[in-house]
């Protein structure tokens, strides 16, 4: 932010809130002022003057401190609803002489925060804000709020650093059991040359190719040979499995229904993750969208993205198409 912004009385993103200490200070100043005026006692005037001087000094220095702070938040690659999300915040103090003391970093609208005890002048400090999204979905990236109270804590002065873009929060992971799949099992072999899937026996070792799962990296050989070596696993017949999520409910506006639907989605997401981690090919059907069965982390993300964004809707469920392969259907009991 260029220097003229520091001269503005209010600059973008600035917020001010009095603390309890401010109200007590106001009472103190009122009483001392009244006593001084009533008695003409110069010692009380001195006390009043120094109190007000401290108030002004605290305001000026905290304003200076806040005006020279810049902050940036780094989000993790995956954010899960209900799980602790660790966000790294980096705060830079551009003041040439004044350290920033007791800087609080929060995420707007989210719980949690962290205190950076001291940021020396012209230096930066990092901290981790552990927060939690209560619900899945697509959110505008929360702004980072930096608060300063020092030196005397009369006001909470905050500066808001907004971030562009959205943040996708995956459904909550729960302890879900693998369902009983119904339908005729359908198998498949390796999908395309060069793609190996986890789960089979190790057949050979070869050099890493783009697209390989990093979990198949053979670290010992890699260290020995000085290049990335992966394990190619034996093909095996894999079954195509579908998880079918029925989004139709009787009353989608009912909060209880929405909560139950979210729980259902969490279960589906957890099952999908578990199956894919076990090496199964899993597809997802959320009417009318169909994600064909596949493997791998990218496929899992695709499924999770769909589940993160699905919303309940009013209606009656129907079988969307003839599923080839085993499937397990998840629906709320009230839908009809």
């Amino acid at each position: 932010m260029p220097w003229p912004a520091a001269l503005e009385w209010r600059f973008p993103g600035f917020a001010l809130a009095p603390t309890r200490g401010f109200w007590w200070f106001l009472l103190w100043v009122g009483l001392v002022g009244l006593a001084a005026l009533n008695t003409g006692n110069n010692a009380l005037y001195m006390l009043l003057a120094i109190s007000l001087g401290a108030f002004v000094a605290s305001g000026v220095l905290s304003r200076h401190s806040l005006g020279h702070l810049r902050a940036e938040a780094t989000w993790p690659a995956e954010v899960w609803a209900g799980a602790a999300t660790r966000v790294t915040v980096a705060v830079t103090n551009n003041s040439p002489w004044l350290p920033a003391w007791a800087v609080v970093c929060r995420l707007e609208g989210l719980p949690g925060g962290t205190v950076l005890p001291m940021i020396p002048p012209r230096q930066a400090a990092q901290g981790v804000v552990v927060t939690r999204f209560s619900r899945r979905g697509l959110y505008p990236r929360p702004a980072l709020v930096v608060e300063v109270r020092a030196p005397l804590g009369f006001f909470v002065k905050a500066l808001r650093f907004s971030s562009e873009g959205d943040l996708l929060v995956y459904p909550q992971l729960v302890a879900a059991g693998v369902p009983r799949f119904v339908g005729t099992p359908q198998g498949t072999r390796e999908l395309g040359a060069g793609k190996t899937q986890r789960g089979g026996e190790v057949e050979l070792l070869r050099e890493f190719r783009p697209g390989d799962d990093v979990r198949d990296v053979h670290w010992k050989q890699t260290a020995r040979q000085g290049r990335v070596i992966v394990m190619e696993r034996k093909d095996r017949e894999r079954h195509l499995r579908f998880l079918v999520l029925d989004p139709h409910v009787r009353d989608p506006d009912n909060p209880t229904t929405r909560q139950r639907f979210d729980d259902l989605v969490a279960e589906v997401a957890s099952v999908a993750r578990k199956l894919i981690q076990q090496g199964h090919a899993v597809g997802l059907v959320v009417h009318p969208t169909v994600v064909p069965p596949a493997w791998g982390i990218e496929h899992l993300r695709q499924i999770l993205t769909l589940l993160a964004l699905v919303e309940p809707r009013r209606g009656v469920v129907g079988v969307p198409f003839s599923l080839q392969g085993e499937h397990a259907v998840y629906r709320l009991g009230e839908s009809s």
């Binding site: 110069n42 001195m46 009043l48 007000l52 001087g53 401290a54 000094a57 000026v60 220095l61």
Partner: peptide
């Protein structure tokens, strides 16, 4: 420990403002 610059600056500024107020 709080940085000495902070509490020194606060004290000095408070006195500088308080003296003319008095």
């Amino acid at each position: 420990q709080p940085p000495w610059r902070l509490w020194l600056a606060t004290t000095a500024l408070a006195l500088a403002v308080g003296a003319p107020l008095f």
